[in-house]
Structures are given as C-alpha cells and as structure tokens.
Design a protein around this nucleic acid. Structure first.
Lengths: 373, 373
DNA sequence: TTGTACGCGTTATCAT
DNA sequence: ATGATAACGCGTACAA
C-alpha cells in the first residue's frame, strides 16, 4: 500500500496504466515495433526485442484487451449460459464442477469465461443477441437442450459459434448432422446401464421418478432408457411406477412416498438425479425401510453428495472433466475457423455401484449399515 | 437452421453485424446522432430518435462492447476469483449459489461477470495484473481472505477496485486504514451461536473438527468462536477435542473416527462445514451411534446437502443472497466513484436447528452412549 | 437539434 | 528490421 493511506480508493487516481505509446517512447522506438516485439510477431532484432520487453516489464505494461479486441475483431471470450443463473434449484450442484473445468481449460487457451444470464424481461434469444451480437464473446456454450430447440435455428442462422452440452432431435430424427459441435453424456445408455444393474440383482418392479419436462432432450433420453430397458427385459410397463416430476429432493421424497404407499410397492427406484435420489432415500428411511436391503435406489450424475449419503448411492457418474474439456476445445476450434467444427462427442456415464443397491450388502448381516468401508 | 445444411459454420460468413455508421447511413443521419439517440444521451428530437431506433431495431444493431469500452475507459465487467476454479474440492458447494446471485445482480446493473483463474505458472497477483491491468474487468471480487493478505496491499497500491468476501485482521487493516469495502458473514458469531445451542442442550464435551490453514481469516474466526464459547462456559480447553484439518468429507470421517475412539469421546462434534459434517455423521453411523441421540453434530454453511442427510443437519446458514447482492453493489459503487466505497457489511449466519442435534432429544433420555462403546 | 473531428489503444499494411 | 499511417467502432467536445 502506498504511504498516503488516508485516501480512499475513489479519491485518488489509479496508478496510470501505460500504453503501447508510452512503452515506445521510453524504449525509443515506434509503437508498431513494440507491438511486434511483445508478440514475437514478425522478425525483430533480438536486441530491440530485449530492450522493449525490458521496458514493458519495468512499466508493468499489460495490453488493453478491448483495444486489441476491437482491432482483431475477436474477443477471446467464451460465454456460458445456464438457466441455473436465473433461479437456484437443487439440480445446480454439478454445474460448479463443470464451470471450474471449463474455466481452467479456457484460461489455458487464453480465453476468458463470461457468465450469461438474461436481463429483466429478456428471453434467451435476446440474451444471445446481446452477448454475441455485442461482441462480448466469440462463442457460447449452451446447456439444457430441448428436443426441438429454437435456439439452434437462431444461432445457426446468425452464424454465431456455439457448442452444445446436449443435443436436439435434429441429428436423430432427420438423420441430418447438425453442423455445430455438441458434447453429450449418453443419458439413455446410462439409464439402461443402471436398469441392467437392477435387473441383474433380480428386481422386476422398478420405478422411475423425476423429469418433468419431456421437451428437454436429457429428460426424454433418460425416460426412453427406462422404457427400453423394461422392454428388453420383457417386463410390462406399469404407469403407476413411472412418475415424472421436478428434479428436486422434495419431489423425490414426495414421489417415493407415493410409490411406497402402493399395495405392491416397487423393490427398486431409479431417480432422475442424485439430489432427487436423496429425497427418495429419505422417504424410504422414514417408512422404516433399509435402503440397500428393502429397497434399491439408483441416482444419476455422480455428485459428491452420493458418497455422503447413508447408505452411499449407486449412480451414473457424468465425466465432467471430459465434458468441459471437449466443450471448450470444440468451441475454440470453431471460433478459430478450424474444420472440426461439426465434431460430435458422445461420452458414456459410468456406473458407480455403491451401497444403495445393496452391492456389498449381505443378507446375513445385521440390519445396520452396509459395512463396506 | 438455414436450408443449406451441408455447410459447416465456418464455411460461411457470419451475418454481418451492423455498425453505428451503417445505421446512420440507413437513417440518413450522422453516427453521433445515432449514438445519442440510442442512449437518450442529449436532446434529440423525438421523431429523429424514433426513426433511428426503428432502423437500429430493423438491422438488429447491437453496439460493439469493446469499442464502447475503449472509448469509455470502462468495461462494465466484474471479475470473480476463487481458488475453487483451480482444483475442485468438496468445499465448493456453496459457490454455485453465490455465483448465481452475483450474476443476476451484476446483469441487472448491466455488468458482465468474468471468471478468473490463474494461468499455468501464474500467481494470484499476476492474475490480477492480467485481468485488471489488461482492462478485462473494472473490479474484482476476492474470496478466501487471509489474516494478513498480501493481495490487499497490492490491489490498494495499484488502485484496482475490489471488494472482499471476508476480511483481514482488524488491527492490520486499521493500522493501514484499509479503504476498501468488504462483506463478511460473522463466522465467530456463528460458531458461538452453534456452541451455545449445544451447551444449552447440556453438552460439555464438544469437539471441533476442520480448518487446516489458520491464516485464512475464516478459519481463524471459526476456531476463535469455538474457543471463546468454551471459555464463556467455563469449560477447560481439551486439545484432544480440537482437531483442525482439511475441510472435506473424507477428513470429517477420519477425524470423527479418531474422536469416537477416545476413552472419553465427545458428545457433540462441531464441523467446520456441512460437507465435513456429512463425513462426521458417516463415521458416527458406522460406529453404531445414532446422530441426534448418541451424538450431536453441527455443521456450517447451510448447504442444501444438510437437508438431505439422515438425520437432517443442524447448521449455520450463510445468507448468500445478501452476500452476493452486497458484493456486487459495493463493487459497482466503487467503480463508479461513489463514496460508499469503504462500507463494511457484516452479516450474521442463521442457526438452523435440525435433527442432528436431536431437537427432541433429552440428556436423561438414554445412557449417553458414546461412553458405552 | 444535429454534424464535424478527434481520441481511445491496438493491429495491420505499406513503405523505407 | 523498423517507422509511418490507417483502420477497428464508438463517445464526445466543439461547432454550426
């Protein structure tokens, strides 16, 4: 801190931030020379470069990003949009991890990450227009894809670089490859893997809870996985065991209560997400059931939460590291005009078998907890 | 999507984004007139303004943020830095909620939010220099304050606007008349409130786990709260009951095991954070104890997680809405040169009493079983 | 009320 | 290898 410590931050000018011109003056060369020397641009004599860099370092010179952006017509900023920024709900948990990965990857490639959220009475499309049209970012990462998502048409038409976490029906229905890249965790496959795990344990009355908006591709896909798994196992669909609903802990609790009150309750419950599974387990516990013995529970996402629950939760882990890395790399490649822009990355969630499906549990054990650890 | 679906995004030019000059040309006026009309700047005839705005809307004109920033010497961007973006650990959970609040508040004030993370072999100070010195953002929100935090001197000296979530040592600040705003949740008060809750339930052997780096003000403060509460209650300090350590679920599990293995185990355990408390509860459960009856557990933070655990977790809820709102408003006020720059906001965490401290439980109820192991 | 001219800090093109 | 000069798109004194 400087010695004039009585002055407030706004009462005194900030330390002047030197410009290219200032560096040039002190180094006795032209601005353009400094610009080049600092970027190893074209051939600059070694000694000139050294002197310039020395002066720049001495002055703590940092190029003005906005001037650079204006000149380059590129911002080196990635935008990240998620409805989680509007209202907080339980399902946000894994976003933080994803965001951390994305930020690290972006920074490593010298990109900034911008968080996007619609303004008051502004819809998604208007927000994209504001961010991309206003040159706040070069491209955007989209979440929460819908089966038929109007945002894609929009971004396509305007030529705005983007990458999807998720996909729409375009690819599948029209057998027409979406000309923009997407990264997806195969939700259908994941649910099927979880279902096969339950089936292999001998369960036949398997319920599914959660997912209230079938228009979200992710919801559609997980539901499809559930139905397909039953079909493959030649188990008749039972509408009473399929209960869509908001993906919250409270709803998991409520729906599980409803399921367990049936005269022929399910022996296993597949929850749309881990947080919801927590609610299911809470209901089961209150009903006097021991999860992992009297009732099997499977979640989805692989949140840290699943390891903290009692019993620990069997779940499908989303490979967030790979997701984040792919999203950033595909978007940057696209921005820089590389040709792999229509790459599609489909990752498989990994089945983590834990105690809630009674993995390690042994019938002769005491009704106490699964003593796996 | 356009009809030429065979073309990749990079094979075709983006839709041209109109400039001020373009709008001016189409409206038959000068650039400056457009500039003013679009910002209700100075007096512009109603009809001119109407025509200009109509043309701008027709062309989907959005001002180039970088040109505007260059001209205004202000970016309207807030930077957010947290070590959570470097590596993911359990303690990140509440950041997502905070980030959501911050983003909403910032956007409402027409500011963008930028996520910051040091580059490879770059330290914190260098990162600030890059972000603030490079005009990526006008100011920054700092997390994870240390008792004697070198970052403050640095930011002060350079005159970079900033606001702290947390604070440094009173005396150090006072001696230097630290003129920047901070927002803090009173950790010491929170722990004392939790301790008083436990004391009122009759507990005297109360352990505290977690907090491995006393240089973090937050750690120092919570530890102080613990010690002060014991002192106020005339309970002798017992080093065996005070176990600092990393704030993770695994460490909570480990330390609780150690505590419960003592010949005179504690009857209550205060965990540094909710996630850590989850580990404590897991250990207790495995040891055959019923949390809320045989052992009381208190957490800190008020994460959603606490409501999902069995039993539900008594905790100190951090008022993240208010924290986020204050941070953004104080930072923006500072950036815009308003005088409330040295405002200090101290918020109180709220004690949420849930089942883990045995709401209904009564000391004479059962043989304080931890001793009966 | 509107137009003119210049500056913001950088990069790029053209000379030298 | 280096210097002069012109954009980039917008805001804003100043002039009309």
């Amino acid at each position: 801190m400087s010695d004039d410590s009585t002055k407030g931050p706004s009462s005194e000018q900030s330390v002047a931030r030197p410009t290219l011109a200032e560096v040039a003056r002190r180094a006795g060369v032209d601005k353009s020379t400094v610009s080049r020397a600092l970027r190893d641009d074209s051939a600059i004599s070694a000694e000139t470069r050294a002197r310039v860099q020395q002066v720049a370092a001495y002055l703590h010179y940092v190029p003005n990003a906005n001037a650079r952006r204006l000149s380059n017509a590129q911002t080196n900023v990635l935008a990240f949009a998620s409805r989680a920024f509007r209202r907080n709900d339980d399902s946000d948990q894994f976003l933080m991890e994803l965001l951390a990965v994305i930020t690290r990857e972006a920074v490593a490639a010298h990109f900034d990450v911008l968080l996007c959220c619609p303004e008051e009475d502004e819809n998604d499309l208007q927000m994209y227009e504001r961010i991309l049209g206003g040159h706040h970012a070069d491209g955007i990462i989209l979440m929460d894809l819908r089966r038929n998502d109007p945002r894609l048409d929009y971004l396509c038409a305007r030529g705005y670089p983007h990458v999807l976490f998720g996909r729409s029906d375009e690819d599948i229905r029209r057998a027409r490859r979406y000309p923009y890249p997407w990264v997806e965790v195969d939700n259908r496959f994941g649910v099927r893997a979880g279902m096969e795990h339950l089936l292999s344990l001998g369960h036949t009355r398997i319920a599914f809870v959660g997912g209230d908006f079938a228009e979200y591709f992710c919801v559609f896909d997980r539901h499809t996985g559930y139905h397909e798994a039953l079909q493959s196992a030649h188990i008749a669909q039972n509408p009473e065991l399929f209960l869509p609903g908001p993906v919250t802990e409270a709803e998991g609790y409520r729906l599980a209560q409803r399921l367990l009150a049936q005269h022929q309750p399910p022996t296993a419950i597949f929850a749309f997400g881990d947080v919801m599974a927590a609610g299911v387990m809470r209901a089961a516990h209150e009903a006097g059931l021991v999860v992992g013995r009297d009732l099997a529970v499977v979640g989805f996402d692989g949140l840290g939460l699943g390891r903290f629950l009692t019993p620990t939760l069997t779940t499908l882990r989303q490979p967030l590291q790979e997701v984040g890395r792919s999203l950033v790399q595909l978007l940057i490649a696209q921005i820089q005009g590389n040709t792999m822009s229509d790459a599609h990355v489909l990752l498989c969630p990994e089945l983590e078998i834990r105690a809630s499906t009674g993995g390690v549990w042994n019938p002769s054990d005491s009704p106490a907890s699964p003593t796996s650890r």
